[in-house]
Nucleic acid binder design. Structure first.
Lengths: 197, 197
DNA sequence: ATAATGTGATATTCTAGATTGTCAGATTGT
DNA sequence: ACAATCTGACAATCTAGAATATCACATTAT
């Protein structure tokens, strides 16, 4: 009773299917970048991909599944660009520069990667925490108290958010200069902190 | 054609109505603290307040409206506690101490105030940005580049989030000690940054 | 040529939750 | 007493969007 998988428009079934799948993931990233995950309805994603809901459910069991894939794609692009810039300057500084310029180059990606990460199911939460961990490793190779790491990463991410919200006024170099000191923050020695300088 | 407003259970109409309104707002804060704004359905809020939907729409035109009120209430409680602790120590340090201990004392409040702030309508966004501004003023009285402020506030907020997520392990004093250095961060002088110490 | 399979459009089903409306019984003013 | 108002429980309506199913037509293998 196996259905016969025919060749169609010159492509095998597997080729067609994976093409559709990729088109959907890219479309999801585009739509989510434009309207947020909330606005990335199955219908909107399919329209962007020029496919219909049937093909959506051919490749994904539900909406959250494609969110995870879109997030992974965004993460890969982002880390890829961060890797490209690396080499010159100090590693942390170049990671920051790569991060911010990647966001500047693709704001939609930024939206998916930084905003809208709440309340989209357990799989998305897991995926985004994993992404945060990778970022943290790039910015703070050393490690330290988890709360300190959270603070450093939070500072960088929120700088990015405000930068995005302001429409990328402020050149990248300046943003890097503002963000860099946060990566050097270290736990305070409890008392005597020099008041004057 | 004016309906007559009777006295009932010893209270005037206005008293009963504003009692119901307050009960609903408190209930909204409780429910949202427990299940998040997403889970704070009208039905759930009414159940918690031991009222019915009719009274909900007597006091609020829609769901977002009560979210804004609940948020304002959370903000007031938080800032109130921060004010109480003030006086001893440096102002910024005491603000931090008040902030973290308030969150510790009322995790539900923390959830409403820090988490779940995305995608709940324009009024909520406005209210939360206003709240963020007030916090920022408490932590960074001086001011500076908006991106720098965003970084400082982001660091503190994300430290709080992680602290909450970890179940308030780590004593308040230590959290304050970790957060404090972030409030002293200043823009880097572009180049020469001392490597050794 | 024709039967099986692929495709796009569209219709249908399902669900959750907001919002509105109805009703019987309780409480109050006169 | 009794009519008007208040109250709680519950039903009805509306909407949005996910997930599934159906249709007519296109393409392919034999």
């Amino acid at each position: 009773m196996e259905k016969e998988k025919r060749r169609y428009s010159g492509q095998s079934f597997e080729d067609r299917q994976s093409d559709r799948r990729e088109r959907l993931i890219h479309a999801a990233l585009v739509v989510a970048g434009r309207f947020g995950l909330e606005g990335a309805s199955v219908a909107a994603i399919c329209a962007e991909a020029e496919l219909t809901a049937r093909y959506f459910y051919e490749s994904f069991p539900n909406r959250e599944a494609i969110f995870v894939e879109a997030y992974r794609l965004a993460q890969a692009e982002l880390l890829g660009r961060m890797g490209e810039v690396a080499g010159r300057k100090a590693p942390v500084e170049s990671a920051l520069a790569g991060f911010f310029s990647a966001l500047n180059a693709n704001p939609g990606l930024a939206r998916v990667f930084l905003l809208d990460l709440d309340d989209h199911g357990p799989a998305m939460r897991a995926a985004s925490e994993e992404g945060a961990a990778k970022l943290a490793k790039a910015f703070v190779p050393a490690g330290g108290h988890p709360l300190l790491l959270a603070g450093i990463l939070g500072a960088i991410v929120d700088i990015a958010k405000r930068w995005i919200a302001s429409g990328f006024t402020t050149p990248v170099e300046e943003v890097v200069a503002i963000a860099l000191p946060f990566t050097r923050v270290t736990s305070a020695p409890s008392k005597a902190t020099r008041k004057a300088r």
